[in-house]
Amino acid sequence: MLYIVATPIGNLEDITLRAIRVLKEADYIFAEDTRVTKKLLNHLEISNTLYRYDEHTKQHQVENIVNLLKDGKTVALVTDAGTPCISDPGYEVVDEALKEGIKVTPIPGVSAMTAAASVAGVSMRRFLFEGFLPKKKGRQTLLKSLANEKRTIMFFESPHRVMKTLKDIDSYIGNKNIVLIREITKIYEEIIRGTAQELMESLKDRTLKGEFVVIIRGNEQEPVKERVNKYVNMKEEGEY
């Protein structure tokens, strides 16, 4: 069995009872950074065998993991924080395991994407998730392609690039309402809202730390009052 285990993104209390049990029972745990995961395992008093699985080791570790699974071992895959295989390594080993007929089971839990979406105050009924933006090649083209996007747009950004990203949003996407959420579940958790220019002004004299989730309000999102009025009209006309 291959378990894909979600782990806390900050607050260590944000781990499920099932995740704790699976990590305790796994024959092997593969982690993006063993040093980070070791802190969590120590906190949970778990001492199982721990190996590294990241962008630099995945080429040979995929085969190793699949061989362990074929031998009847139980393997748990975790990332540094949150749910694996979204913006972190992991989908390759899941793909290979499924091809080999090995059962893969998700152990759901924290995700920065869904946690940020829940507190943004923006409609998330339809949204586009871009992970991390390209640092150079393709960045401008991608941002320009999002200028007329009707869905809410979400992506991750590092603290040392967030100011440049806000400037690029202002240049290529335009004057949109943006939500910045950083340090989710941690002591200095913060939600900041405004246009790109307003946010740059707010952040310009600050030392920025912690990964950001950037949420851009899509085009043509109906205000709550308009949606309610439309619903009432549809009810009256028997269309709902």
Rank of each mutant, 00 (worst) to 15 (best):
residue 180 L to G: 09
residue 142 L to M: 14
residue 202 S to T: 15
residue 195 T to G: 09
residue 91 Y to V: 15
residue 59 Q to N: 12
residue 84 P to T: 04
residue 139 R to G: 11
residue 105 T to M: 14
residue 6 A to F: 12
residue 80 D to K: 02
residue 22 V to M: 04
residue 97 A to T: 05
residue 217 R to Q: 14
residue 156 F to S: 03
residue 61 Q to I: 14
residue 122 V to F: 14
residue 193 R to V: 06
residue 211 E to K: 00
residue 72 G to W: 02
residue 127 F to Y: 11
residue 104 V to T: 08
residue 102 I to L: 08
residue 136 K to Y: 06
residue 159 P to T: 02
residue 217 R to L: 09
residue 190 E to K: 01
residue 88 D to P: 08
residue 56 H to G: 10
residue 5 V to M: 06
residue 100 E to D: 09
residue 10 G to W: 00
residue 18 R to F: 03
residue 197 Q to T: 14
residue 45 E to T: 12
residue 202 S to F: 08
residue 206 R to Q: 14
residue 24 K to E: 15
residue 32 E to V: 05
residue 136 K to L: 13
residue 203 L to W: 00
residue 217 R to P: 04
residue 13 E to H: 08
residue 50 L to Q: 12
residue 184 I to R: 00
residue 170 D to V: 05
residue 100 E to W: 02
residue 98 L to D: 02
residue 119 V to H: 10
residue 26 A to N: 08
residue 7 T to Y: 04
residue 165 T to G: 09
residue 80 D to C: 09
residue 70 K to T: 04
residue 77 L to E: 07
residue 74 T to L: 03
residue 72 G to C: 10
residue 217 R to V: 14
residue 237 E to T: 11
residue 70 K to R: 14
residue 25 E to C: 06
residue 216 I to C: 05
residue 91 Y to A: 11
residue 197 Q to E: 15
residue 85 C to G: 11
residue 183 E to Q: 06
residue 102 I to F: 04
residue 139 R to V: 07
residue 74 T to H: 07
residue 87 S to M: 09
residue 217 R to D: 12
residue 92 E to N: 13
residue 148 N to H: 14
residue 194 G to P: 10
residue 122 V to D: 02
residue 127 F to H: 01
residue 232 V to N: 09
residue 234 M to H: 13
residue 218 G to A: 03
